[in-house]
Structures are given as C-alpha cells and as structure tokens.
Design a binder for these strands. Structure first.
Length: 721
RNA sequence: GGGCAAUUAGCUCAAUGGUAGAGCGCUUCGUUCACAUCGAAGAGGUCACUGGUUCGAUCCCAGUAUUGCCCACCA
C-alpha cells in the first residue's frame, strides 16, 4: 500500500469497477442478491444538465449531494434508482450555437436553413452531452447509465406529444392572441420566468395631453394612444367621468380620447394619469381587456415603427425616440424632461435582447381553467371535483404530500403560484419539440402522430424547454406506457435541485404530474444553495473567479471536491468554496488513507482470542453512536453535519488519539491484548470507512478492498448497518 | 412596495437555552516510530445593537441597523 493515495490513477479505475459491477442499476442489485426483491424503493432523477457545454461547480455540488443520498439508500438495502439524463435546453442551446456559427462563419440560422441549422445544433449537443457524461462520472456519481434519457429523444418526444394532446383536448392548452414577452433579437417569445430586469437610465418626459400631464419614458409607443386612465378615487380628476370624450392635440395632430377609470393606476406615481398602449405593455393590456378597449400595434417584431407613426414609420424605436421627443417639444407638448431617470428594463435571460411586449398568437397553458381529475391521488383535490392547475399545484404542497426543504421555500412557492399567469409555451425557435398541431385550409389537427392525407402543414413553433422538463420524473420512466419502471419508481422519493429553479422546474413538474398522472411527481424537494466564491460573489467568467470542478478533481481528487461542497454550508444556504478549502479536504483524504495504511500494517492473523479492554468497548460504542447520529443527519438532509461529525471523529479522535494509544498494545507480548487492539482498530476503521463512503466514495472504496476479508468485495453495496 | 434570509475568531462559515467551534491564515515547538498533504501547544470572539421572556439568552420573542436574495411594479 503506497504512502500516498494516488487519486489520479485510481478514481477512473474505481468508477469503472462500479460500472462493470452493474450495481448502479437496481435490477442488477436485485438479481445479484444485494437488494431484496420486495425492498422499499428510493428513486431520484438527476436534474438534467443543459447540453450547452460543460458542468460547472454548481453541478458538482448537486451531484455530490445526490450521490450521498443515493449511496446511503443503496447501502441501506433500498431498491435504489438514480436516473441520469441531459436537457436540450431549447433556447439556450440554440442561442449558443447561433453565436458560435456567427462568430466563425458570419452566418445566421436563416442563412443555413432550418434543416442544416438543426443538424449543427445536434452535432454540438452530442459533443456537449459526451462531455457532460464524462464529467458526471468523474465526480463519482452512481447513476444508472442504462436508463439514461434526453429531453429530446424519441421516447421523451412521445411523452411530450402525448401530454400536449391530452392538455389540448381538455382545453388547458389553447392558442390565443395575448400579450407576450417578445425578444426582437432572438425573434421569439419568452416566458415571464425567463426575464431578467436590468437597470437603465433614460430620459423621462412629461407631456401635455389635453388637460392632463402624462409621464413616459417611452414616447415612441404613444402614437396609438386614445385612452387616458386614472384612478376612480382620485379627487384631482373627479370632474372627468368614466367614458368622457375629449379632443386632444397629439404628436401627429388632433385625436379623440376616452377617459377610463381603473384601480390599477397608482395615484401617487407621477401625475396619477396615464395613457395606455395595450399592444405593447402587459398592464395596459389588462386594462384594455377589462374595459373592452381597442388595441393597436405601433411597433413591429423587429422593433421598428409601423405606419401609424406617420413620418417615423420604418424607423427603429431607439433612433426614433429622441426625434419624437424633439417633435413634441416643437409642438409645445413637452413640458419637462427628467434626464437620468432610472427604471428597469426586461431582458431575455438567455443571451437575448431587450423585451418588447407584443400581442401575438401563441400557445398557452391556462392555469385558471377548470377541469376534473378522474382519479386524484393528490390530497386536497377530490376525484371528479372541479379544480384548476393553480389550485392543484397549491394543494399538493399544502397537504404536506410534497415537502419542500428548507421549509421557508414553501412560502416562496405559494407566493409564486398566486402571481402565476397563463404559461406561454410556444417559441419561435427551431431547436426543440415541434408543436404537434397541423393545419390545412381552415382545419386544425392536434395529434400524437401527423394526420393522414396530403397538404397538412405543421405548426412551425417549438415548445418551451420547460414543457419537456416538466415531464421528467415520469417521461424518464417510460410514460405514457405503463412500464414496470413507472409503476415501481414513480412518484420519485426526492427531487434535489438548486433553489433558483424552484419556479422554472419544480413547480412545472408538479403541474404536469398532477394533471397527467393525477399524482405528485416526488415526495420531497430538497433545495441546495448556489455555489459562490470565497468572498460570496457569484462565480462568473467575467469576474474570473470560477472554479472548475474538473480541474480541481484532477488536482486534489474528486473526493476532496465533494467534501468541500458539502461541509460548511447549511441546507438551502449558498455554498462558499475556495481552492484552499478543497486542499483542506484533500488532506483529509490523505489522512484517511494513511490511518488505514497504519491499521493494515499492524494487522496480522493472531490465533489468540482477543481480550477487549473497557476502553476498547467504549471506543466501539462511540463509533456506533456516531453511526446513529450520522444516519439521522443524512435522513434529515443535513449532509453538512453528517460530514462534519465524520471528519472530526476520524481525525481528532480516531487518528490523533485512538491510534496513538493503541500503538503500544499493537506490539504487546500479551497476544490476547494485541489481538484486541488489532480488532478494535480494524473494526473502528471499517465502520468509519463505510460511513464515509457516501461522502468520499473513491478513497473509501479503494481502502475497503484492501481490508482483511474484503478481497473482491465492493463497498458501494455493503450493508450500512 | 411585499416577502425571505443573514449579521459568531483576521477571512469564509458551522453549532448550541447552561460562560462558543471548524477550515484557511497566524505564533512556538517537534521529523528513526501510518501521515510534513503531519503532530503538539498557543494567540485570537462583550456571538450586530436595544429591550423582553427565563434561575440562566449567542440561541426564544419584539424592535432597530446593515447586507444579500426573491417577487411585484416603475405608465
């Protein structure tokens, strides 16, 4: 046994042994007798990484946490499935490939055409996938590769089309002209959750509008204005009655406007009066809907003004804005300009442009539309009783059927549902699941397979990537077929992911599973924090503070990287990491190795019957007590404390005290005493190696195989107790 | 505007109703003895502040301050 633990040489070899054993697959475990046939299940799906490139340190944290749960469950005799896969990440992947191609060849997707472009994306996705698989393996993740899935593969596509059709036929999915977040750069809609707000400084104009003064940062939207809105309780405008008509001199001449009273107006903001642009603003759209007002388009999909803008038609809004302000000024309509007004501008999170709200024909999932669950397994939703997606999503968590940990995120979840609007699921991008709807003449057909007959044209839109992710807990198990896997492993035991995708993903899974299966997708949700640098800053390429888990694994071993991501951060809190911290845990791995080496060097087959001292018994009892504590912590998802206890017992007590005290007795002439010392040492070590396995699987597996009586055995399927 | 969290050693963070812990850093000493990727010893903290509950509060409660995050909104 070498002085040093050579993780570089060993980790890949160990992973290969695990893979070849087949024990990542629960069926093999049953077949080979390491798991009982009727054992309880423990199932978890891997949150599929996007095929946009490499795994980052956040993925490593996720893999470490999940692997601890999975290895613990497996060692406890559960029928354990950890199902891996990757996500096609529609818009993110398309944006990435588009930009790569543009940089390299100066071409955009339209230059290449849909087929060729998709071929390129697939090529990129494949490479990215292979890379991800390599990295997942490198971290020691005990996932069942035989069941690997991709959100865009054939089986998952069938699930998507089936889900779409069922929701479409129920009327939950509908096509409608509603206001959406339009990204003029990517030329697609994005959902509310995909927006990011950035502060922007812009001039803020106060304009004379008949007897009123209105404020705006966007004069370019004002061409179609013909309604002026104020709060019904606003005393200042009491004399103006709802529905009153006024003649007003405006940008391109006199217009007739109608007074509207609506409670959405904030009396304290500006003058308490505003004009509305229903086509280009969500709040305005809602007001217009409430009062049945006309909606007019002013800006086109590319951000250019339409003929309604008169002389400004065809001009891009960014260019037109100052010119319009000038014209207003010349006409004496501009009362005041506030420079450097700070407001938030919505931007497409996925590398897109500034959002221009537009009214568009899109596909939506109606979250307030009533339907009936035939055979509800969700507490709080009765079979045959009317419910809505919103109500159902709430009920699943409210009844404690799904537990979200840490518990504070339950509130966040409820709050999000309260604010939820219909989910826009269509995207005008090419990479993704094509909407399973076909048109011919005036006819529309929605089906799992294309309609028979000539001349049908499929809807050109694709689905929001989260539509397919929402099905992940069961599409990966074979749904819509009632497979053995599906019956055995669904609902899954735990869903573990970062709190940043609680809405995007966790909530959508509850929605999909609830409607399609009348059941919950998972029993528990454990949310981990975001990984930050030693100063608590977000890791980003521009800050240059990223820590690459692969590079760190090469340098210090995957076990060290895993421990550094687990220990020292409380559940749900952000995880701080630094190279120093990783080095610290590398030292621990070396410590474990050396202590084991010492135990082995001092082990011999002694015939004498060991005569244990009171101290020996006390130590062995200590280790049992430790196991109890560690088990409790793991079951409560408190991996930090479990790891911390193990670390300190091993180092401070076992290595520094116990071994030192046993040294004399290990050379004793009293054979019975010597045997007792040896036994105590090996037993304590074995127990600790076992307990450490979920946390640092590589070094412990290697040591296990070297311990007496373990030749050829695999620690990963040893019994925990 | 609403909500959530944090505030503990030089730095980054844990834990706990009974005069505080770790990693890294720092100081001193120590390598024939598993390990210098080490060991031993040590310095370093009115646990943000103010009240309250309690025999006792860093921990529970209320308030204040600062920081961070989430949601809504900014016409």
């Amino acid at each position: 046994m070498d002085t040093r633990y050579d993780y570089q040489a060993l980790e890949d070899k160990i992973y290969k042994r695990w893979e070849e054993s087949g024990f990542f697959n629960p069926d093999v475990c049953v077949k080979k007798g390491v798991t009982k046939k009727d054992a309880k299940k423990f199932s978890i799906v891997l949150p599929p990484p996007n095929v946009t490139g490499n795994l980052h340190i956040g993925h490593a944290a996720m893999l470490a946490i999940e692997d601890i749960m999975v290895r613990y469950a497996r060692m406890n005799g559960k029928k354990t499935l950890w199902l891996p896969g990757t996500d096609h990440a529609a818009i993110a992947t398309q944006a990435k490939v588009e930009s790569l191609i543009y940089k390299k060849e100066g071409k955009n997707r339209h230059d290449l055409g849909r087929d060729e472009f998709l071929r390129r994306v697939e090529e990129f996705a494949k490479e990215s996938h292979d890379n991800i698989v390599r990295q997942v393996k490198k971290m020691g993740s005990s996932v069942d590769w035989s069941r690997e899935a991709y959100t865009l593969d054939e089986k998952r596509s069938l699930a998507v089309r089936t889900a779409f059709k069922r929701m479409h036929d129920e009327g939950l999915i509908y096509k409608g002209a509603r206001i959406v977040n339009w990204d003029p750069k990517m030329q697609t809609t994005v959902s509310d959750d995909e927006l990011e707000y950035v502060e922007e400084k812009a001039p803020f104009y106060y304009l004379k509008f008949g007897p009123f003064v209105i404020g705006t940062a966007r004069p370019e939207t004002k061409f179609g204005d013909k309604y002026v809105v104020m709060h019904p309780d606003d005393a200042r405008y009491k004399k103006h009655k709802d529905g009153e008509k006024l003649e007003v001199e405006w940008i391109n001449g006199p217009i007739t406007v109608t007074v509207i009273k609506d409670k959405a107006i904030d009396m304290k903001f500006g003058t308490g009066v505003m004009t509305i642009t229903p086509w280009h603003d969500a709040t305005d759209f809602d007001i217009a809907e409430r009062h049945g007002l006309d909606k007019e388009q002013v800006i086109d999909s590319y951000g250019k003004l339409l003929p309604i803008a008169g002389e400004f038609a065809g001009m891009h809004i960014s260019k037109a804005r100052p010119l319009i302000a000038e014209k207003l000024k010349a006409k004496g309509l501009l009362k005041k300009t506030e420079e450097d007004y700070v407001h938030n501008v919505a931007v497409n999170q996925r590398g897109g442009g500034k959002i221009e709200p537009q009214i568009k024909e899109q596909w939506f999932i109606g979250v307030n539309k009533e339907f009936v669950l035939p055979k509800s397994k969700i507490k709080g939703v009765k079979s045959g009783e009317k419910t809505t997606l919103k109500k159902m999503m709430k009920a699943a968590v409210k009844g404690n059927q799904i537990k979200i940990l840490p518990k504070r995120f339950e509130k966040v979840y409820f709050h999000w549902i309260d604010n939820l609007r219909d989910w826009c699921i269509s995207r005008q991008i090419w990479y993704g699941h094509r909407i399973p709807v076909w048109y011919k003449g005036g006819k529309t057909y929605c089906g799992i397979n294309p309609p028979k007959g000539e001349g049908w044209i499929q809807d050109s839109d694709t689905l929001d990537t989260w539509f397919s992710s929402g099905l992940w807990t069961f599409s990966t198990l074979g749904w819509p077929k009632e497979t053995k896997d599906f019956l055995e492993f669904h609902p899954t035991s735990v869903l573990e992911t970062g709190y940043d995708i609680l809405f995007f993903w966790v909530a959508r899974m509850i929605l999909m599973s609830g409607y399609l299966l009348c059941d919950i997708p998972f029993e528990k949700v454990y949310l981990h924090g975001l990984v930050r640098d030693a100063q608590g800053r977000k890791m980003s390429k521009s800050l240059g503070n990223t820590i690459d888990p692969l590079e760190m694994s090469e340098k210090y071993g995957a076990d060290a990287v895993r421990l550094s991501l687990i220990i020292g951060s409380a559940p749900g809190n952000d995880i701080k990491i630094s190279e120093d911290k990783i080095r610290g845990y590398r030292n621990f791995a070396t410590k474990v190795w050396n202590a084991s080496r010492f135990a082995l060097l001092n082990y011999s087959e002694i015939k004498a019957k060991p005569q244990f001292t009171a101290d020996d018994k006390k130590r062995l009892a200590e280790v049992s007590a430790l196991k109890k504590k560690v088990s409790e912590h793991i079951e409560k998802f408190d991996f930090n404390r479990a790891g911390d206890e193990l670390y300190h017992y091993f180092w401070d007590v076992f290595a520094d005290k116990v071994i030192e005290l046993l040294k004399i007795r290990l050379n004793s002439d009293n054979l019975r005493d010597r045997a007792a010392a040896q036994e105590t040492l090996i037993k304590m070590l074995k127990e600790q190696i076992k307990m450490l396995h979920p946390f640092m699987p590589f070094v412990t597996e290697e040591i296990w195989g070297l311990l007496p009586g373990n030749k050829g055995k695999l620690l990963m399927v040893e019994k925990w107790t």
